[in-house]
Structure formats: structure tokens, C-alpha cells
Nucleic acid binder design. Structure first.
Length: 454
RNA sequence: GUGGAUGUAGCUCAGUUGGUUAGAGUACUAGAUUGUGGUUCUAGGUGUCGCCGGUUCAAAUCCGGUCUUCCACCCCA
């Protein structure tokens, strides 16, 4: 054998069984999206690098897959570029395209580009793969599918509520127990403002986000390392320690954030959303989590993240509101909010917990045994009649040994085998074999159809 | 990007302190069964021991590099 072929790191092939299960996830999610009035779009796998860079933070830029210019990709470079190599400088000269990192930024670009043809508020869903040059591990791939729903051009908090309803419905349908965590970037901004470190908002949120994972002490260490003053860290403590019931949390928060306009706005927004949720009887658990931060830079309002309690795999759904994503592309004052389901992680969870429906592979309902060229001709006509009745059927393509043909039907779990040889051709009857019981009977076309239709 | 583990038949895995010809199960192919699958029996390919290099009389085994997969960090779906 020659060199074994392989696929790039972090990418995967999907077998027929895996595809059936993946499609089950996609179909379930898509149907919920449609039910809530969202419409599909697709965008290209690659975008201009200028569309992508700077939208995801420093880490995000590092994880962008860049595409080498076609043709003589060195023609814009000169010897000086290589004498004192600067990766960013060289990259900008040899790459002008990149693979999409998520679906939200391309969506914002789409909205700006098509603004005259879009009726706002625009509710769209999009199910496509995205690529990240990350180091693969469990639940982390370099190519994976996101299922995004966003509504853009509406400030109403009803949108947030509806998106959370979608989350609840999708995971009920898939049978996954989840906790939906909700927070608001404005609250986080307010906190940063109150402790006098407004410019360090990103460092603060990233550190706070780790609270559950590494504990209060380590978080404080990290804050100190990022250059926060001891005073600021001290005044942050009451917030980090804020636990208990919702009705207790809010008054305390309002007290702390009373002097911050943004902070108060964030509290108002969050309270409005949570009030609605209380009325709506969600099946999944949900909670206000002040430590939820989310790394993506463009969020400005509500932020949402969903994890399952039954498996350690990170978040399986996340999103939030972004007020100025289209502004970057030249269309200001259009706010959007959306969430993204991670289909591949959802697959891993369902696989681990054995949540897929038990139906096996979809196969033909019946297989006709191939006895030779005369029988083949006869069988093709029979086959057409069967298929015209809406029954999936196939003829074994070669007149191989009976044993081989039976084995094929057995392994593909085809429930019925039809034998048509010389004898059957003369009598006009078919020999029908039930593969699970092993029983055989002679039937005419009407009886055959009747049995196969069951 | 940092640190750690891993790689042997298509698949799941054995393989002793370096030692001569590399193993089991399963899957696969043929036959027992020329118009009958699953169970059974028999016979058989199962192989660059991830890849490249080094040490040695001798390397699956020791050393270095590289790639893959997995784990932790970072970050994220």
C-alpha cells in the first residue's frame, strides 16, 4: 500500500450513521427556528480578511485560518519584509482572504451589504461550518458547524426572551438537560466603571469568567497581574460574592451600581428579560450569572451561555446582543441579538448520553436478488412498480452468489428480500423472504405491496 | 501558543531486561452449503510495528526530531 491518506488535524469524516444523527440534530434545530419565524441564508466559507480581523479579540485573530493568495502570492512582498520578518506585515501582503470564524460577523457584513433589500427587523438563521485554527481536543474541532439565529434591527428585549425560548425548546426536543446562564455586558461595564477601571473591562470580564473554575483567590491574583489596583479589587469583592436568590441579588446590585448609568441600564434590561422568563415556564434551568463574561468582543448587552450538567464539554450554545457590529461595516445604530448552537458538541453530548432515537440506518425496504441477465431485465420492471408505490427498493447490481447477496441484505438491515428466478418468472409470483424471521412465502404483486407498505 | 501522554493487522489490543520467523479476538476472502443471510467448522492475505534519523553485531523495544490522537492551560461552540 502506498502512503496512507489522511485528513487535516481537527477535521473529521462522517459515516452514514453519523450523518443520520447529525441531520437529526440539524433538522430539530432548523424546525424550531422556522417555527419562530426565522429565515435561512448562507454566506461563503471565505471572507475578506479585513471583514474578519479585529472582531473577535486578540485570541480570535490568532485562530483565523488565512488563505494564501492565488498565483504569485509573493509579488507584493520585497526583500526587506524578510530581512526583518514581521508576521502581521507579511500576512497582510500574501493573504487577503480567510475562512469564517463564526456566522455572526459574516451575517453583519451581509446585512450591511444588502440593507436596501432587507425588511427590518430581519430574523435569519444560518447553519454552516466555521473554522478555527485551534489546538484540537475533546469537544474542540478545527472545523465545526454552528447553528445561528439572530434578529437584527430591533432593540426590543422580547427578542432576547424568544431566543431563550428557542434554546429551551431545542434542548427539550433533543433530550439534553441544560442550564441557561444569563448576564449582561452593561452590568459588567458598570462594575468596571464603579471600581474605577473602565478601560480594563475585557481583562476584568475574562478573569471573572473563571470564578467557578479556579476560585476567588486565583481570580484576584489574575486581576492583580492585569494591573488592577488593590482598591479596585477590594471593591469588586462584594459583587463576586453576590449569591443567593434573584430577588436578593438585584437590590444589592442596584445599590452597588447606583452611580453607573450603564450598569443601571444593564440591570433594567436583565430584570425585564428575567421577568418574562418567570412567566413562561421553561423546562430547562436558567439563572442570572454575574460571572458569565464571554470572550467575544462585540457583545454589548445580554449575554447567554448554555451548558449541560450531564457532561463536561464546555458550552453547547452561546450568544448575546451586539449594538454596533454593523457599524464597523458602515451601518450604525442597528442592534442585533443572536445565539449559536454548537452542533458538534451537541452530537458528542447526545452520543455520550445515548440520546439518539433508536431507529437504525435508513435502507431499502426490500432487495431483489440478481440471478442473471434475463432475470435482471424482469426485475428492473418489478423494481419500478415497487418504487412507484413509494417503497424504497434496490436490485443487487451483480449476479453474484446467493450467499453474498443475502449477506449484503443482512448487513444493510434490509427487512425483505425478493427472489425472482426462472420459476417465479413463469408463475408470475414472487418469493418474499422476511429477513428477521427467516420466513418465506409466494406472493403476487398486490400482496407484495401490502406487506412492504407496513 | 505552553506543558504532558499516545501511536503495532481494516477495528479493539498483547508483545518480557534490546535477540533471531511479530501475536490474539473481531472483521475480511474462499470452502463445508451451485436458490438462501445470522450460528458453527475448516483454510487463508491480515503488517513500512506512525514517519525520518541516530546508538548497536542486532531496535516494535533505547535516544533525538517530526506528525497524529487524547489530556491540562489559554480560549471557545
Amino acid at each position: 500500500m502506498a502512503q496512507k491518506p489522511s485528513i487535516p488535524k481537527g477535521t473529521r469524516d462522517f459515516s452514514p450513521l453519523e450523518m443520520i444523527r447529525r441531520n437529526y440534530i440539524f433538522d430539530t434545530i432548523r424546525n424550531v427556528f422556522l417555527n419562530y419565524g426565522y429565515q435561512p441564508i448562507e454566506t461563503p466559507a471565505m471572507e475578506n480578511l479585513s471583514t474578519l480581523t479585529g472582531k473577535y479579540g486578540e485570541e480570535g485573530d490568532r485562530l483565523l485560518f488565512k488563505i494564501l493568495n492565488s498565483g504569485d502570492f509573493l509579488k507584493k512582498t520585497n526583500l526587506d519584509d524578510f530581512a526583518n520578518p514581521n508576521i502581521n506585515n507579511i500576512t497582510s501582503k500574501i493573504c487577503e482572504k480567510g475562512l469564517r470564524y463564526d456566522l455572526t460577523v459574516p451575517f453583519a457584513r451581509y446585512v450591511v451589504q444588502n440593507r436596501n433589500d432587507i425588511t427590518f427587523p430581519f430574523k435569519r438563521y444560518q447553519i454552516q461550518p466555521v473554522w478555527r485554527a485551534d489546538k484540537p481536543q475533546k469537544g474542540r474541532y478545527r472545523e465545526f458547524y454552528q447553528c445561528d439565529v439572530d434578529v437584527i434591527g430591533s432593540n426590543s428585549l422580547i427578542n432576547e426572551v424568544e431566543l431563550i425560548l428557542i434554546i429551551d425548546e431545542v434542548f427539550v426536543k433533543l433530550g439534553i438537560n441544560t442550564t441557561i446562564k444569563i448576564n449582561n455586558r452593561k452590568i459588567l461595564s458598570g462594575i468596571a466603571e464603579i471600581i474605577g477601571e473602565a478601560d480594563k473591562i475585557i481583562d476584568i470580564t475574562i478573569a471573572i469568567d473563571k470564578l467557578e473554575k479556579i476560585g476567588l483567590e486565583k481570580v484576584n491574583e489574575e486581576l492583580e497581574a492585569k494591573g488592577l489596583s488593590q482598591d479596585a479589587i477590594d471593591s469588586l469583592q462584594p459583587i463576586l460574592n453576590l449569591e443567593g436568590l434573584l430577588k436578593d441579588k438585584f437590590p444589592k446590585l442596584m445599590e452597588i451600581l447606583a452611580d453607573s448609568e450603564v450598569g443601571m441600564k444593564g440591570i433594567y434590561e436583565t430584570m425585564t428579560v428575567l421577568k418574562h422568563l418567570k412567566e413562561l415556564n421553561l423546562k430547562n434551568k436558567w439563572s442570572l450569572d454575574l460571572t458569565l463574561a464571554r470572550g467575544l468582543n462585540y457583545y454589548t448587552g445580554a449575554i447567554i451561555e448554555v451548558a449541560t450538567d450531564d457532561m463536561k464539554i464546555g458550552s453547547i450554545c452561546g450568544g448575546g446582543r451586539y449594538d454596533d457590529l454593523t457599524g464597523i461595516f458602515g451601518l450604525p445604530d442597528v442592534s442585533g441579538v443572536g445565539i449559536s448552537f454548537g452542533a458538534d458538541r451537541i452530537y458528542d453530548v447526545m452520543n455520550e448520553l445515548d440520546l439518539f432515537p433508536k431507529e437504525g440506518l435508513q435502507t431499502s425496504q426490500a432487495m431483489l436478488v440478481n440471478f442473471g441477465s434475463e432475470e435482471e431485465k424482469y426485475c428492473l420492471k418489478i423494481l419500478k412498480e415497487i418504487r412507484d408505490k413509494g417503497i424504497s427498493a434496490e436490485l443487487y447490481p451483480d449476479s453474484a452468489k446467493m450467499k453474498k447477496q443475502m449477506k449484503y441484505a443482512d448487513q444493510k438491515s434490509i427487512p425483505f428480500v425478493i427472489l425472482i428466478g426462472v420459476e417465479e418468472m413463469e408463475s408470475g409470483l414472487f418469493t418474499l423472504k422476511n429477513m428477521s424471521t427467516g420466513e418465506q412465502q409466494k406472493v403476487d404483486m398486490d400482496q407484495l405491496i401490502k406487506i412492504l407498505k407496513k
